[in-house]
Design a protein around this nucleic acid. Sequence first.
DNA 1: GTGCACATTGCAAGCCTTTGCAGTCCGCAC
DNA 2: GTGCGGACTGCAAAGGCTTGCAATGTGCAC
Lengths: 344, 344
Amino acid sequence: MRSTASDVARLAGVSVSTVSRALTVPDKVSTLTRLRVQEVARGLGYHPNQAARGLATGRTGNLGLVIPDLENPYFSSITKAVQSRARSVGYAVFVADTDEDSQEEPEIIRNLAKQVDGVILCSSRASDAELVDRAKETRVILLNREAADLPSVTADNVDGMRQAVRHLWALGHRDIAYVGGPVRSWSDSQRRLGFERAGAELEGVRTQELGAFQPFFSGGVAAADIVLASGATAVVVYNDLMALGLLERVKERGIVVGRELSVVSFDDIMLSAAITPRLTTVAVPIPLLARTAIDLLLGLFEDGAGTPGVARTRVVSLQHTIPVDLMVRGSTGPVPKPHRSLAR
Amino acid sequence: MRSTASDVARLAGVSVSTVSRALTVPDKVSTLTRLRVQEVARGLGYHPNQAARGLATGRTGNLGLVIPDLENPYFSSITKAVQSRARSVGYAVFVADTDEDSQEEPEIIRNLAKQVDGVILCSSRASDAELVDRAKETRVILLNREAADLPSVTADNVDGMRQAVRHLWALGHRDIAYVGGPVRSWSDSQRRLGFERAGAELEGVRTQELGAFQPFFSGGVAAADIVLASGATAVVVYNDLMALGLLERVKERGIVVGRELSVVSFDDIMLSAAITPRLTTVAVPIPLLARTAIDLLLGLFEDGAGTPGVARTRVVSLQHTIPVDLMVRGSTGPVPKPHRSLAR
DNA sequence: GTGCACATTGCAAGCCTTTGCAGTCCGCAC
DNA sequence: GTGCGGACTGCAAAGGCTTGCAATGTGCAC
């Protein structure tokens, strides 16, 4: 169906080896030959067969991305960013959605292992031991998760939570709840940790942790009434999607968010700046996250050169933490009135 | 790094050929040998190298999906569905996001061509001729787009629009606007067509077409004031994401959607049933869309058998149109009062 | 003029499977 | 007892590319 290197070789009157070299290591071929080969190749629309090249070199030029739920805007943004960065450095990416079910992961990784140079495993809820196991099949970078000493890229959840709670504190809130995400989620455990620490650092704050809830819109809806019953004047929600759900239900109950109840969440998905009230949220810089993950992965086996013309962050450590920023918007405001919890 | 067929062969005391056969065509191997080979293979965690298999058989077990914008929930749902269906029939999928820019497509397809058995090209805005060209590189299925006689799977946009307009008509609306999506979008042109036809079929309806707008939240925001200025009592919007934007701005202007202005759109993304007011929308059955596309693609080269245990729709025609359903929800309601346009 | 270094290029092996063909062995029929 | 078909199995080629090594040819120094 498509032309091969030997077609090019025949037409250019050279051997296949020369064709290969002319296209991959141009300086090992005389200028004249190189030009001729390249011209014939272009004329034929020749592109080397990646699979064959992979067989020969052991490098496939492919990456895998294992993601929990493409329908969560946060993860689809990550997918978009990873895919975009990968393409800009000459890699194609396999995407596999696990439906928030880490049981599928080993099978997926095994199937991908031979045709990728590595996989980015996003927000896996598998245990440390399981993850170490998976890393045996192929190179693995953990995204939004740390485990053992596997290479990983994570957002600074603890600091993000600190920023969120301090912001609420500065607004006068003294009774703050955390609406937690799924059990076994590493991010959730980090956010809980940050929540506890931040609460302990600040004076006169009463904190309470709710959940686990599902990390979907529906999870937020489910959490809403519990939050209202808790007496908290402000709430930090595991992620934006849940916050959206919570807002919806809270508004339905006639509460004005930003005045009667302040809401902060995590991720900064596109919609969170679009809805009313605009959502105060801890923004994870997704492009940076994706870029770091890919550079880390490539750094694991590329000798340093990389794709010419594309600057790459030099990889130093194997466990990266990306700084996060609190985006203050309309969903948070001053505590409405002296609240009974202040008296305590 | 990983074991190969020859490792298995050595340990099982047979030849590589036998290993291959034991694993792919078990009935050509004696029961005893087969069992031994399978056991050794399992013990070694052996999985055939897909790339090598692809070289040998010409079939890769991979699919490509080219999608305009992963951050649009409609497309991320499609990606999820395609990926899920593909996996269930034993295929892995490459995902490439073009950022709504069809210029990238040829390059992407060319790079993927040799490592996939086919490509699903979603909502491409390329011209017919360009698409025919792309189909020369590898098998191509068009999704949300028809062109020439290329195989395609599309939603029934015209009928969807008919349903939408009739619904508005039944509610008493006689002055209806269409907020259009991007120029050169095939779906948009179909929806415009349906809009014009539906308007012509119904008595006393005044229709007007606005746009083109960008198919994002921001596009809807931009359209809002124009819609309000148009005097229309009801509006059909190109897609849900835009409708969300429009709603936001319209609400900001103090208009109550569902009472003072009725809004219908297309896609039925998850959020459209979640926000207030819930969005009346033409639902595209995405799983069916994805499933049809994949089955069509596989039907193009699999001899009929397919993966055992997984039923597949028998492919008859090459251009499929998927029926759509209007989901009536809160964003549409009876026309508020006799409107001047009624008098005309 | 001779020899040598070096730049080019081709040969052939190797990467891992699959698969047509051929060989071996067995059992059975005549 | 001989012959034959059939069931298994191995050999080897093929698929497209990369790359170490060898071969060729050139230019230059001495």
